[in-house]
Amino acid sequence: MLSGLSSTTNLSVEQLLERFSSGSLRQRRSLIPTIENRADELAALGTAVMDGFDPEGDDWAAGWLLQVFQRQQPQALLPLLGSSSGWFSAPSAVGIDYSPLQRDLLAEQFEDADRFTSRILRQLAGEEAERRGYVYFSEVPPMQAQDLISLDRLWTAYSQGRFGFTAQARLLAALNGRYDRLWPRIGWKQEGVWTRYPGSFNWTISAPEGHMPLVNQLRGVRLMDSLLNHPALVSRR
């Protein structure tokens, strides 16, 4: 049974890691400052630091550890990543390389990650969407399930579980499907969110839950509704 999470100074680094990897959402988030303060001890564990996590999953505790190392102990990432494109697996049914997205999310370059995601959604939608520069809601259902899952998993894993399509769907469900209530909750403008003018968007981990990635609402909610209800993403809720 997990208890006494407020008293972490006497925990061994192995005990701290166990609590961070197996605790509840609230318990994990309470440990974030301690994880950052003890990054050097965690890095000293070498590759064993990730033994309790699954690269096929979307555990944000694993993603946060990697982001802490990126900021404070970048040398610790070399044995963890090796020559791979990222610690998390990100398969594609159509040969898309998701290593740029992993690099951007790892470095908390969320605007670049969002642009990559938008580009991939157009690619998954087909040549016409790429040519026109945006996706129609009718082009969403045929999108490859594996690729939508990879996009969503990476956003989830590298955002403390705060961003991604399933995070947006979870919030929408809690608001009884009311998009007019969702927009202010996630910090979007109801009349459209496709613009990226300076100061109009928060590209940090402190943004409201569900804030990223952007989905074009200039033509109404049908695109986002179709995306969030794609069977591949519904299966992840």
Rank of each mutant, 00 (worst) to 15 (best):
F88R: 14
A90C: 02
V94N: 10
Y98D: 06
S99G: 15
S99C: 13
R103D: 00
L105H: 07
A107D: 07
E108P: 01
F110N: 11
D112A: 14
D112K: 12
A113R: 06
I120E: 08
Q123M: 08
G126A: 12
G126P: 13
E130L: 09
G133P: 13
F137C: 09
S138T: 12
V140T: 06
P141D: 13
P142L: 04
M143I: 07
Q144K: 14
I149Q: 15
L151D: 07
L154M: 14
W155K: 10
A157R: 11
Q160I: 01
F163D: 05
G164K: 02
F165E: 15
T166C: 03
A167E: 14
A167M: 08
A167N: 04
Q168A: 05
L171K: 06
N176T: 07
R178V: 04
D180P: 03
D180I: 10
R181M: 07
R181Y: 00
R181K: 08
G187I: 02
K189T: 11
E191C: 06
G192R: 05
W194N: 12
R196H: 04
G199H: 05
S200D: 13
S200R: 07
I205F: 01
P208K: 01
E209Y: 02
V215P: 00
Q217H: 13
L218C: 09
L218T: 14
G220C: 03
V221M: 05
V221C: 10
